[in-house]
């Protein structure tokens, strides 16, 4: 199983954000989390992405129990198994588009160890070109539109071909064309059978494309 969460709860101080959430996702599948704002979608994604430790419950990633893993092991799993597409693109302002895409490779050297720097750059170019950004490879984030930034962030999330893709509101603030490009790129990976997609959205039309919908 790629991702399994069982009876996951999360308290932040005295406040209980999540309670008893269970779900599962395998390669080739997609799971949409639908909820109004402030209910805990991002918290649940953070727990699934090993950014947060649940107050109770288990999280299994690629058949590995994560409860007793230390920070280094969790970091390693994030680097090698998970690709994040954040609600705000989180591109690094001092890096060009192509350099932003390559960032995950810095922390997962095993994923690219057989590739030279030139090959890694070629791969990043290919990813950006596939998303229609061939003429924006060397632009800085501040020189890109919202839609272009989201596409660069998508290329970064998919760069190391992660088994688990986690996307938080992937089409937020995007026009139809950009939204279609991003969603298509994410689902293409799922359809290939190599990855599972967990995403949060408040758009019912997008949620319906998922194999499973989890309402919070």
């Amino acid at each position: 199983m790629l991702l399994r969460m069982r009876d996951v709860s999360k308290n932040l101080g005295p406040e209980r954000i999540l309670q008893g959430i269970s779900c599962a996702l395998d390669r080739g599948q997609s799971l949409a989390i639908v909820a109004p704002s402030g209910v805990g979608k991002s918290t649940l994604l953070s727990i699934a992405g090993l950014l947060l430790v649940p107050s109770a419950g288990d999280v299994v990633i690629d058949d590995r129990e994560t409860a007793c893993q230390d920070d280094n092991e969790r970091s390693h799993l994030r680097a090698t198994k998970i690709g994040f597409l954040f609600q705000h693109t989180q591109l690094i302002g001092s890096l060009r588009a192509i350099e932003n895409v390559i960032v995950p490779a810095r922390f997962a050297p095993t994923a690219t160890q057989k590739l030279s720097k030139i090959e890694i750059a070629e791969r990043a170019k290919k990813s950006l070109t596939a998303l229609g950004l061939e003429d924006r490879l060397y632009h800085y984030p501040h020189q890109l539109s919202v839609g272009q930034k989201r596409r660069v962030a998508t290329a970064r999330a998919l760069f190391l071909c992660p088994a688990l893709i986690i996307a938080d509101e992937p089409t937020n603030d995007l026009d139809d064309a950009n939204a279609h490009t991003v969603v298509e790129a994410l689902f293409r990976r799922v359809r290939s059978g190599d990855a599972g997609l967990l995403f949060a959205t408040h758009e019912k039309r997008l949620a319906k494309q998922a194999d499973t919908i989890l309402y919070l």
Binding site: G49, S75, H76, R78, V103, P104
Partner: peptide, 16 residues
């Protein structure tokens, strides 16, 4: 800090 947090999210360890 935000950039460093991003690195952590993308798999950087504290040592990295």
């Amino acid at each position: 800090k935000s950039e460093m947090a991003l690195y952590r999210a993308l798999g950087a360890t504290r040592k990295n």
